[in-house]
């Protein structure tokens, strides 16, 4: 393992464990700028099963907004109620630790999305999302999406199925990481 000497080894390990987890989930797009909204939506895992007609129905409920560099999509502790899909630009998911140093968990690019937890439950944001360039995002409000799901059961089924699949996938990955972490801890204890 390559551990830099000036960094605390534990923190580095934690970061190694967490970073790929975040990256895997949010990744899912090519670096093609200036693609239209339907293509962007199609890349989002929860919309991947939808037909073009259904994607158009989804596109009716989206809000497209421009954010300047340094603006926050959301801040830690805010009530979350919307999912953000990056159309173009970059957004960093970060959290300030006790020493007020920012830990960057993931960098999102075009086609990535964040805030999907708020689709499932009424919870607080657990990190900051800060735009590192001028960014255009597509925002979907939870209640709008659930209204759509209620209106269009077939479309809704597909979305909910993918949402469940996404959560399951993440749970599996988290379990695997947990096992790894436990092993690491055991090895450490043996020494």
């Amino acid at each position: 393992m390559n551990i830099k000497k000036n960094e605390k080894p534990q923190e580095e390990q934690l970061r190694k464990i967490y970073t790929p987890l975040w990256q895997n989930i949010f990744r899912g797009a090519t670096e093609n700028q200036d693609v239209d909204i339907l293509n962007i939506l199609k890349k989002v895992p929860i919309f991947s099963q939808l037909t073009k007609k259904e994607l158009i129905k989804v596109s009716y409920i989206i809000y497209e907004r421009k954010y300047a560099t340094g603006e926050f999509l959301f801040k830690e502790g805010n009530p979350g109620s919307a999912v953000f899909i990056i159309k173009n630009g970059t957004v960093s998911i970060e959290k300030s630790n006790k020493l007020n140093i920012k830990d960057v968990y993931a960098t999102l690019i075009s086609g990535d999305f964040t805030g999907e937890i708020s689709l499932i439950e009424d919870s607080e944001r657990n990190a900051n999302a800060r735009c590192t360039t001028n960014t255009t995002v597509i925002i979907i409000f939870r209640h709008d999406l659930f209204d759509l799901i209620a209106r269009e059961p077939l479309l809704g089924n597909k979305i909910l199925k993918d949402l469940a699949a996404m959560v399951t996938k993440r749970l599996k990955e988290a379990n695997e990481e947990l096992v790894k972490y436990k092993l690491l801890a055991e090895v450490k204890n043996d020494h």
Partner: peptide, 24 residues
């Protein structure tokens, strides 16, 4: 929906999500 979107487009980014929740 279009009218709602148009009205919401005047709201600064900082207050956007809050406005959505409030409106709802």
């Amino acid at each position: 929906r279009e009218i709602r979107k148009w009205l919401l487009s005047f709201i600064p980014n900082k207050y956007f999500e809050m406005s959505l929740i409030t409106l709802r």
